[in-house]
Simulated assay, not measured.
Amino acid sequence: MTSDTPERADGLHTGAIRRRRRITLLLVSVLGLVPWSVQTFSTGTTALLFPWGLVSPSTLSVTTITDFLFHLTMGLPDFILAWPLGVVCFLVSLGSALSGYLFGRSDVRITVAGLVLAGVTQLEVARGFSVQPNRTAWPVGTVFLWAVASYLYWSYTDASEV
């Protein structure tokens, strides 16, 4: 039985490569929709830090990252600046995955490195928030970012395949 899909020298079919690139883009994209930091307060309220903004479910308020960067940065502690730095790292990963999907040209090492670095920045955000009184921050984004990075790293045998 033969396949109609052309096979590369490394044994992968072009259909499998396209599917792998689609999965990579999907996984990286989903990371933009999950909270990167969950902050709990002694009052029982919660705040969710996403790559695109800060959500306070109890008040149903949203502060976008653009509002944060251009309107609210006066007097904020330095550790919070790790948040937009992490977003830049994430956008590098997303761009890499999108390039692989659209043009077939990408390097999984760039995608993985951006995710790992974004995860590191969220550890700093959580650490900074957790030392404040009456607040604990959970770096759940670090877990998700590193889980996807690990999956991508170990699932590709050739770094130029993304």
Score class of each variant (00 low, 15 high):
69 L>G: 05
56 S>T: 15
113 A>N: 02
80 I>Q: 08
13 H>K: 13
49 L>S: 11
87 V>S: 05
125 V>Q: 02
158 D>E: 13
80 I>F: 08
88 V>Y: 07
6 P>R: 10
68 F>P: 04
11 G>E: 03
142 T>I: 07
145 L>N: 03
56 S>Y: 12
154 W>E: 04
2 T>D: 12
83 W>S: 06
69 L>D: 09
138 W>Q: 10
130 S>W: 00
112 V>P: 02
116 V>A: 05
102 L>W: 05
136 T>A: 02
141 G>N: 06
131 V>G: 05
159 A>C: 01
71 H>Y: 12
53 G>N: 07
36 W>K: 01
44 G>I: 08
157 T>E: 15
29 S>R: 07
53 G>P: 05
56 S>P: 00
155 S>N: 12
68 F>L: 15
39 Q>C: 09
115 L>R: 00
28 V>H: 01
10 D>C: 12
22 R>M: 10
32 G>C: 03
127 R>G: 13
150 S>W: 09
96 S>G: 15
155 S>L: 01
89 C>S: 14
114 G>H: 06
160 S>G: 12
6 P>K: 07
137 A>C: 14
158 D>L: 09
70 F>A: 07
129 F>K: 12
7 E>V: 15
92 V>K: 06
42 S>Q: 08
24 T>A: 08
33 L>M: 13
63 T>F: 02
153 Y>L: 11
45 T>M: 06
155 S>R: 14
48 L>S: 09
83 W>K: 02
85 L>N: 07
94 L>Q: 04
132 Q>G: 09
138 W>M: 07
41 F>W: 10
18 R>Q: 14
38 V>S: 08
124 E>K: 13
114 G>T: 03
18 R>L: 15
30 V>D: 08
149 A>K: 00
132 Q>C: 02
146 W>V: 04
27 L>H: 06
24 T>E: 13
148 V>H: 02
134 N>Q: 10
78 D>A: 14
117 L>P: 00
77 P>T: 10
79 F>S: 07
141 G>W: 02
85 L>G: 09
69 L>W: 10
153 Y>I: 02
138 W>F: 14
70 F>C: 09
6 P>T: 08
119 G>V: 04
98 L>T: 14
79 F>K: 07
55 V>C: 08
108 V>T: 10
31 L>D: 03
38 V>A: 11
41 F>R: 15
8 R>D: 12
89 C>I: 06
114 G>I: 00
93 S>D: 04
95 G>V: 07
161 E>Y: 05
123 L>H: 01
11 G>C: 01
144 F>E: 02
7 E>C: 11
97 A>Q: 03
73 T>A: 05
145 L>E: 01
128 G>E: 06
148 V>G: 01
101 Y>K: 00
49 L>T: 09
124 E>G: 10
151 Y>G: 00
30 V>E: 07
137 A>M: 04
69 L>T: 11
85 L>V: 15
